[in-house]
Design a protein around this nucleic acid. Structure first.
Lengths: 110, 110
DNA sequence: TTACTTTGTTACTAAAAACTCACATAGACG
DNA sequence: CGTCTATGTGAGTTTTTAGTAACAAAGTAA
């Protein structure tokens, strides 16, 4: 019997999903797609950065299964495939607010 | 007026929180702490990997504000500070199951 | 067909993260 | 004090990820 963690393999897979999301540009893409389907051209226009770089990040979200695309003529429209990821932000915001609180308190204590 | 994404800076911070969690060892630490407070020695015993490396990962979770520690003699006991991160796993599991479904379907289509 | 548009990919460089080993610190206790 | 135990850190190497520029692919339409 293995005395170590119950699910190292599941944790490896879970990490790969979180990692796919853990990048500012990829979060901005998710933020844009939150409003609905968008073509790459629209995504690129709404985000700072080079077209080929943004295209790479779209690919990372695709391969992680978080978004999906559909071609319409020359354009490819992407949309959120797993909208449940939006629920992460409630918690991440709590974490950030807590970080701020503590840093403010540390400043006061000087 | 800025025509780009509404919150690039917030997304940078959000990414830093997600990134802190997006590693197999750190997820295993969270999994262990889910059951309650644990000292480093117990965490190390329950996870595959070198002491100093696990210590580093504990540090990363600490600096992200996801866990907190308390010294008791020689030992330091850590616990989840933001249990809301546990809610992420509902969604990450959905994503993984969906990935599996699609890969199975692709195999069938051969 | 050729020319054009939109998107994705290859190959490379640069930057960041992870891992390891040795050492440092903090407290307990003789 | 010295020594032991538990934990953290510095410095270096290796691995992974990000970014860029040039090119390739897929569709449109003259």
């Amino acid at each position: 019997m293995d005395t170590k963690s119950p699910s190292p393999e599941l944790n490896r897979l879970t990490a790969s999903v979180l990692k796919a999301l853990a990048h500012p540009i990829r979060l901005q893409i998710v933020e844009v797609l939150r409003e609905g389907e968008r073509c790459v051209c629209e995504i690129v226009d709404s985000i700072e950065g080079q077209r080929s770089n943004i295209s790479r990040h779209i690919g990372i979200l695709m391969r992680a299964g978080l978004i999906e695309g559909r071609r319409e003529g020359l354009r490819i429209f992407y949309r959120l495939k797993m909208p449940c990821v939006l629920s992460f932000f409630d918690c991440t915001h709590k974490v950030l607010i807590q970080q701020l609180r503590e840093r403010a308190r540390m400043l006061e204590e000087l």
